[in-house]
Every structure is written in structure tokens, then in C-alpha cells.
Amino acid sequence: METLLEKIKDRVNANFDLKDYKIYTDLKRVDLFFNKEHIPSVLLYLKEQMGFRHLMHMSVVDWIEEGEFEIIFFLWAPKEKVKIFVKTRIDRDNPVMENMDNIWPQLNTYEREFKEMYGIEFPGLVAPEEFILESWSGPPPMRRDFETDKYAKDNFATRPGREDAQDVRETIAKRSGEDIPDFAKKYSR
């Protein structure tokens, strides 16, 4: 298995500017990292030339601390029974990714979703403006800096009747006269 995965990696590397890779032998999985401009040609090559015809999934991860979105394509070769994860990073402040629904039509749906949920632009994407969210004017909600808790508190009322709830730690500290210093509080439960 390891040689097969190595071979796949080598073949891709021979044709494209592979940034990095990682092989997980027991999972029959190869992770390939590229710059985003190579992605369409890599995907097309993998699909048409190397038998990775099935797109299992596409995902976006918000690495807000690093200022980037990670975009991942999960491919499956039905014959070799091997997975490839094609990964790339795009700038979080100017998130643009090429529209690729001509390679796999289902990407159209994924792109609609990520446009709405992460605010990623896919120039050339033909689809109705709204997908899941209706009349949504807030920031793209799946971004890490959108706080669901805060949003819920700001927009929805809480039913009264539960104000007598107490924090166990605070109750005990108060009763025994313990002053928990502020710098320690982040470690409280």
C-alpha cells in the first residue's frame, strides 16, 4: 500500500508544483498541499488521468489565527480504493477561489454553501443568490469570529424562571471567603 501511495504522490509531483504532502498508510490516504492557483488543473488531472473520479466531499476550515481558510477536496479512486485530500490555503481577508463546478457538478452546491457561510467568492459561479440563509445581513455565520452564543443572547429573549441558578465554584468560594484572583479565573470550570 505504501508504495502505491508513494507512486501517486510522485506522479502528481512530477506534473505539478507540489508544496507538501503527507501519507497515512493505514488509512490509505495521501494529503497533497498546493498553492490555490494549481487546484483546478490538479483536480482535473486527478479525475481524468488518475482515476480519482469520485469527489467524496469538499470542506473549508477557518484558521482565523493564521488569517487563512483551508480548502480541502476529498477524492476517492473507486478502482485503487485510495483517498486523496487535496488541500490549499486562501487569504481570509480576500477569500477568492476558482469556480470548479464544471469538473464536478456537485461542487456548485458546495460553492453556494461556502459563499454564504464563509463569504468565499467563486467568480463565475452560476446559482441563485440565496442558498440556506434567507434575508441574512450579518457576517458569514460559519466564520470563527461569528459568535452564536452572543447572537442568540442579543436576538432572543430567555424565558424567566431560571435566575436562581448558581455556579458551584463561586458558591463555595463565597461561602469560605476565598478570593479567586482574576488571572486564575480562566482556569475555573
Binding site: V168, R169, I172, A173, S176, A184, S188, R189
Partner: peptide, 17 residues
């Protein structure tokens, strides 16, 4: 991290933290 322990500590150290 319940903090039950802090009450019996004579010094009430910040144990869970």
C-alpha cells in the same frame, strides 16, 4: 474542577484552577 475541595482547605487554595 468542581471546587468542593477548596472549602475544606484551611487556606482555601485555588485548587481547580
Amino acid at each position: 474542577s468542581c471546587g468542593i475541595c477548596t472549602e475544606v482547605c484551611p487556606d482555601h487554595m485555588h485548587i481547580p484552577e
